[in-house]
Computed example of a mutant assay.
Amino acid sequence: MTAVGIATGAGRGMGLACARRLTDLVDTLLLVDRDEPAVTAAAKELAAADEEIEVEPFVLDITDPAGLSRLTARATELGSLRAVSHAAGISPTMADWRRIFEVDLVGTARLAEALRPLATEGTAMVCFASMAPLLGNIEADPAVAAILDEPLRDDFLDRLREALGPAVENTGLAYAWAKHGVHRFVRREAVRLGPYGARVCSVSPGVIDTPQGRQEASAQPAMTALVEQTPLGRVGRAEDVAAAVVFLLSDEAAFVSGIDVLVDGGVCAAVRERAGR
């Protein structure tokens, strides 16, 4: 049966880098992005680079339930779901706190829920989280954890705002909490998918040289200090993250599920070492 791959956020940056690597794992690849010109151009690029793979652009806002239903239907038409790289997301300078949660955590949960019926032996998914909650030493108390673990409830954001207080309206803090929620979600999703022979993991990029990463760096001078503290002495490349993603999606990682892989050049280790944590 035709092996189908899905790469979200595939119009640019890390999402596109992951899509390039996915062409080695699948027969047909759906490139998902809300930016129609970008994702169409990416699909043409990948199709031209490898004539043996079918590449199809799919314009979608990952928070749109109707659009996710269309994506699921299209993937079902094409074959058997083999690999999902879910890089679509937004960072602190791109939206307010509510939209950050809606895209980065709720959107991740919606995508996983939509694709769960397609899971079968060998299906693997990688969701993008971040080093932000690790650097911020984010840890949810039981009450907040219970709320984070139900991101699809209609009153999710109101409950979270009540539990965390007005500080969560800071977009940097909201981003860290949303990505902490992704870490938690992946662990729970691994338990749900396991009986089908399917897997899910997350990756947490560090400071990565992408258009989105440069936008954040220009607004947050502290990111320069993080690069200076990075043991490997450089910013990351989109290809560094894509290499980790494609390993987790590959058969080489067939017994790896429910974990987060930190791709940060060692900066979290350095920061924690200096802080004595």
Rank of each mutant, 00 (worst) to 15 (best):
T2P: 15
A10I: 05
R12V: 08
R21P: 10
V26L: 07
L30M: 11
L31R: 01
L31I: 05
V32F: 07
V32H: 12
V32A: 13
E45I: 07
E45Y: 10
A48G: 12
V59I: 06
L60T: 03
I62Q: 07
T63Q: 06
D64T: 02
G67T: 00
G67L: 03
A73R: 15
A73Y: 07
R74F: 06
R74K: 01
T76R: 15
A83D: 08
A87K: 05
A88N: 10
S91G: 14
M94I: 10
A95D: 10
W97S: 15
R98D: 15
R98W: 12
R99D: 13
V106K: 03
T108E: 13
A109W: 05
R110L: 15
R110M: 14
P117G: 02
A119R: 09
T120P: 09
E121C: 12
V126C: 03
A129S: 09
A129H: 09
A132Y: 01
E139V: 13
A140M: 05
D141E: 11
A143T: 15
E150K: 04
L152Q: 08
D155V: 02
D158C: 07
L160H: 05
R161N: 12
E162N: 12
L164W: 10
P166C: 00
L173I: 08
A174I: 01
A176D: 12
G181D: 00
R184P: 08
V191D: 11
G194E: 13
G197W: 04
C201K: 07
G206N: 04
I208T: 06
P211A: 04
Q212C: 01
Q215C: 09
A217K: 14
P221T: 02
T224W: 11
G236A: 01
E239P: 08
F247M: 04
D260N: 11
L262M: 14
G265E: 05
V267N: 04
A269N: 12
V271T: 13
